[in-house]
Nucleic acid binder design. Sequence first.
RNA 1: GUGCCUAUAGUUUAAUGGUAGAACUUCGCUCUGUGGCAGCGAUAGCAUGGGUUCGAUUCCCAUUAGGCACCCCA
Length: 435
Amino acid sequence: MSDQNKQKMQNLQSPKGMHDILPQEQAWWDKVRKELQYIADHYHFSRIETTLMERAEVFEKTLGETTDVVEKQMFVYKSRSGDRLALRPEATASIVRSYLQHGLAHLGQPLKLFYLGPMFRKEQPQAGRFRQFHQMGFEIIGGDDEPVYDAQIILAMVRLLERLKVKQITVRVNSIGCRICRPNYRKKLIEYYKNPNFKLCKDCRRRLRENPLRLLDCKNPTCQEYKPAAPISLDSLCVYCNKHLKDTLEFLDELKIPYQVDHQLVRGLDYYSRTVFEIFTEATAADGTKFDFALGGGGRYDYLIEMFGGRPAGAVGGALGVERVLEVMKALKSGSAPKEKATVFFIHIGDTAKKKSLALIESLREAGIPMQESLGKDSLGAQLRAANKEGSRLALIFGQKEAFEDAIIIRDLDNSVQETIPLKKVVTEVKKRLK
RNA sequence: GUGCCUAUAGUUUAAUGGUAGAACUUCGCUCUGUGGCAGCGAUAGCAUGGGUUCGAUUCCCAUUAGGCACCCCA
């Protein structure tokens, strides 16, 4: 490779933290897409696909101006006319924007939606974390703030993971209260942590000002010492929020979904209220790997629609990180990549047969049979080798003699048994054998 | 954004201050009338830029990318 070409290749590398999904990977993704569609069909969620970019304000106003996601993780692009467009860091804000823009409330309330698509966050890549990654999620928008919807979202996500053979799923649930009781809790936390005897780390001193709920997340050993005695959200909840959480949990009990109430679970985005949850797996891979990232999370966002200027309405949703789920699936060697489709490999021998081959293959395809061929190779051995490599189940062998007799050889590649059949019967015979 | 580690064919890797050897893969041949095996052969590599040196893939620096952790999050 010339030096010039080397430089070209360097420029051609995919951006940091962004990865191609190569052909070898697609079987896994197909599996995920298939099971997502299955859940959507059976739980009656409709697919929505929103734009990859939004006006930056869509996220800034809803996720919270001081959240990390907005403050430093968004890819923002300034157009010449001065518009600021952001690659979406998550889907919920976009979906609510679309819901209001198109008046989707008319489709019925509440509206159950699902999606799968790429999201973008400018962070340092790490285990299970990328700059371009995929989320798949469910939203129930509009209607009342019924706890049964919270349970339905969690149910759909758990069932999806189960169908993907992710084992030992557990859900951590908490309520962060509503706009009435959350400020109380904030105040209590601040009072508690303002204790002059506490030696808080630098980050926590910042959190105290900007996002007190996050104080509970700190992993610094000194800060952790203060955590057990910290006020818990449950004690600050108003009567309504308390009942909401209790009702939600009761639905989970009835569904026998394993959960833990974690009163110190908080979430990073401003639009959440009441229910918040995260989904983990406690499974251990064959090599002993533990998965200590959340596979997904979500919560209720009853104020988000108002933030956009819509009429107040309840809403709840959740999302799973596709790459994280895939990592677990692969590590557990579970739900192995779906088998390749049974394929029929066409083999020609000799020029006369070859001339007729392409049209013959085409007629088979038209009859609904997925065909593979290697017409560029003339050696019979090479073609059989190719068929073997592709894992084809049947070979159709078409040579000089067969072309002359309007016949074709059908060969079972698993047991090497073959027979010659009239060309007319090839479609029915192939279909019969593929069953 | 911060810290630590890493970078040799498509992949996994070996060796070396005098420009690299293998395995797997790919392709071809043995093998236009029967594949999986085998044999033979071919293609393909020192991330980029700079420095030290007679000479750098090797030593040093920077950049880029990857890994891990923090931050945060799916």
